[in-house]
């Protein structure tokens, strides 16, 4: 696993576009099927024929009802879950194993309880630690903690800080290595509404500054519309991306409340919401017919 660091030559460190599609992340015809639990049962189809391109610096959200495979797709991009058939390219390279220099924000923050906030963030520099001196590592971690507003809590243990702070620590850990690709798996899912909206605003401004290519998984339509350049609505019926909605609202975006007061944004939100709800109802209808049989 360490070899991945050496394998990355300096010229490859910057985001390399896919040769054909010129996108940082390219997903082509990707699917996944889990083998049946018992013999004679149907295999479990999770994803099928997914196509998606994420361009340099773009922020794309994956939205859908639970069980539509959005987290699975994100984990595939991060090399954490295998896929077959299809191809995923991240920075021009076929994903088999974890791509170099990515940041990943986990659903439950996934902090190590034995490390302080500062030490947890330092984990994010593990891959590139040989390129930096101790002082540089210290400065980077401090700067990132400053960015997420946790510099005063650097010596606290994860269990001593609130859930929102834990999630911010997880975000800092993903950002500290200055990744080209930032993958986020429902990072605000477990937070209360107020903390959530504040963190969304913070994330919007942070992403604007870092210009990382980001993929964000959520089931919250407002969150997706507020943060994204494009929103991909996934279907749990067809097990693929149903539609991608462009959120053509200029950045920097203001506070959430102000943004949603805009008629155009409200229309976009409505559009995405209709798609998601349509999928939910279709899925419900599908299960109903199944049970009827």
């Amino acid at each position: 696993m360490t070899d991945a660091v050496e394998m990355t030559r300096p010229d490859e460190k910057r985001a390399v576009a896919h040769p054909r599609t010129a996108a940082v992340i390219t997903v082509e015809g990707v699917g996944k099927t889990y083998p049946p639990r018992k013999k004679k049962k149907k295999p479990n189809l999770v994803l099928e024929g997914v196509d998606l391109e994420v361009r340099q610096g773009e922020f794309v959200s994956l939205v859908g009802t639970s069980g539509c495979g959005k987290t699975t797709l994100l984990r595939m991009m991060g090399g954490l879950t295998s896929y077959f058939p299809g191809e995923i390219h991240v920075k021009g390279k076929l994903v088999r194993g974890i791509p170099p220099r990515i940041g990943f924000v986990f659903q439950d923050s996934a902090l190590m309880p034995w490390r302080s906030v500062w030490q947890n963030v330092k984990v994010g520099l593990n891959e590139s630690r040989k390129n930096f001196t101790k002082q540089e590592i210290k400065d980077k971690v401090d700067a990132t903690l400053e960015l997420v507003g946790l510099i005063d809590y650097r010596d606290y243990l994860p269990r001593q800080i609130s859930g929102g702070m834990q999630q911010r620590t997880g975000l800092a850990r993903a950002l500290v290595g200055e990744p080209d690709v930032l993958l986020m798996d429902e990072p605000f899912g477990a937070l209360d509404a107020l903390t959530r909206s504040r963190l969304q605003e913070e994330l919007a401004s942070i992403v604007l500054r870092t210009s990382a290519t980001s993929v964000f998984v959520t089931h919250d339509v407002d969150e997706a519309v507020f943060l994204s350049d494009r929103v991909a609505v996934m279907s749990s019926v067809t097990k693929t991306i149903r539609q991608v909605v462009d959120i053509d609202v200029p950045r920097p975006r203001s506070m959430r409340t102000e943004m949603f007061a805009d008629m155009h944004v409200a229309d976009l939100r409505r559009e995405v919401l209709d798609l998601v709800i349509g999928e939910r109802d279709a899925a419900a209808a599908g299960t109903k017919t199944k049970t009827a049989n």
Binding site: I98, I102, G103, F104, F106, N126, R173
Partner: peptide
């Protein structure tokens, strides 16, 4: 997963 993403040996 954290260890894998950040290339722990």
């Amino acid at each position: 997963d954290v260890g894998r993403v950040y290339k722990y040996n």
